[in-house]
Design a protein around this nucleic acid. Structure first.
Lengths: 262, 262
DNA sequence: GAGTGGATTTCGCAT
DNA sequence: ATGCGAAGTCCACTC
């Protein structure tokens, strides 16, 4: 593959309208992305309707059919479209129109440039993996620090580091005084995890009393685990690694972290 | 003001790292926006943590301190920061780092470019007004077609076009059989609107019975109107013009529209 | 395909 | 400052 020849982007400075149209059509036909900076108005019609009066903005038309129109300030795009749009470029009255049409729901955005300062054809390669981090240990800490991540009124009693990789256990008391055994998984919880938890809960029940709840806390469940949990009389609680990371960042909780670290 | 001299954007194609650094620092010191396209990695640390491996992306650093890092596909930025960040540019090891730091919550994003294809200093002027449309009449129609916009179990009885500009009234029956008088405002509801509604409700009460509710439906309330409503024994219901427009768009509701148009 | 819940949600308005 | 609700939310996942 002659990737040496690939040009990540093709730049046109202050193209006239016809030139811009030609480039845009070509880019869209090749399913390449397009970035336009210029003076424009934007009209949206669909779930609602909107009109944006003339001004200088950055418009991005991505190869997956998504659209972003950004003003000079603000995190959010002033107009946009999620992926799956079809783009149409046209010129009328010395104005370049880019229309993005979506079918479901039926809606469209039209960006009309009376001046184009810059037009970029995008041919970017991005295979980089994206990862949000929150370690398993972090998740356990987070639950200890803020048990409400699992359930309101929960009080941690003790916790235990497991030798088995992939999960940790926390013991709590719920607001009605029942003992709660929590198994935490940082990724999708498997059937094995549910069975493991069942084993612990059963053991605890035999030792303490009948009022023991088993909670599997994880970002999500594997196929069929939901039903298995029901069969075993266990519960699932959604636990977000990112939320855990957030909890651990809160300064006022840091000391509690230290406490549990001992 | 010599706006003739203003350059909407300053373009640098394939700048070397030192040049890019110099431009970036200058732009940030002048509180100008910056757009960089190049090969980068992105690290985020804050409410959560994330790492994005190497790839070609579009990064926008706006003058209000917001940040967007966009991959070639996808509506959402892969990394971002809302307004209020402080930007720092630096170079280490032939790599251009742009750091965006936010104080509350404390977090930061760092975008590190080992190659810069394009660097833009943005000096865009955008005073265009943005408006989401949904006419007052549309809002009335929408409520008639889908009274659940106001409240579940509501049944429209009749409606009335008002001569006074700025609002329309709808009469409904709630699920417990009480009469509900609804005044709709397409913009922020004023005290005057509340008093007007009170007048109507009072009149209806005298004619019909004591079980009459008064509901002021609007996108939002003016200063102090909330308390006035409480004093008058009236209710406020949020009514979104956009939601109304959406309702009217639904094909299966069109016929009902026609019905009411008669 | 519709419905539900989460998000580094963001944003606006109320208290 | 804090908290609650809405969003043209978007998005992923379940039923």
């Amino acid at each position: 593959m002659p990737s040496v020849d690939r040009k990540p982007l093709i730049t046109s400075l202050n193209p006239d309208v016809e030139k811009a149209l030609s480039i845009a059509k070509d880019a869209f036909s090749k399913r390449q992305g397009l970035l336009i900076i210029g003076n424009c108005v934007v009209d949206y019609r669909g779930r609602a309707s909107s009109k944006l009066e003339t001004g200088e903005r950055i418009a991005i038309f991505k190869e997956d059919g998504s659209v972003l129109v950004h003003r000079p300030i603000g995190y959010e795009p002033v107009n946009w479209q999620p992926p799956s749009c079809v783009f149409h470029a046209s010129v009328t009255d010395d104005t370049l129109h880019i229309r993005a049409v979506r079918q479901k729901p039926q809606e469209s955005v039209r960006v009309s440039f009376d001046r184009v300062y810059l037009l970029l054809v995008l041919n970017l390669v991005d295979r980089g993996e994206f990862a949000l981090h929150a370690s398993e240990e972090d998740m356990q800490k987070a639950v200890l620090v803020m048990p409400s991540l699992i359930e309101d009124g929960l009080k941690p009693i003790t916790y235990e580091k497991k030798v088995e990789p992939g999960f940790v256990d926390v013991y709590c008391e719920d607001k009605s005084g029942r003992l709660v055994v929590i198994e935490i998984k940082r990724k999708t919880a498997s059937k094995q995890a549910a069975l493991q938890l069942a084993k612990y809960v059963e053991a605890i029940r035999n030792i303490v009393n009948k009022n023991v709840r088993g909670v599997l806390a994880a970002p999500n469940l594997g196929k069929g685990v939901q039903r298995l949990l029901a069969t075993l009389g266990l519960e699932f609680k959604h636990l977000d690694p990112r939320k855990c990371a957030e909890v651990l960042r809160k300064p006022e909780k840091r000391r509690l972290q230290e406490f549990f670290k001992e």
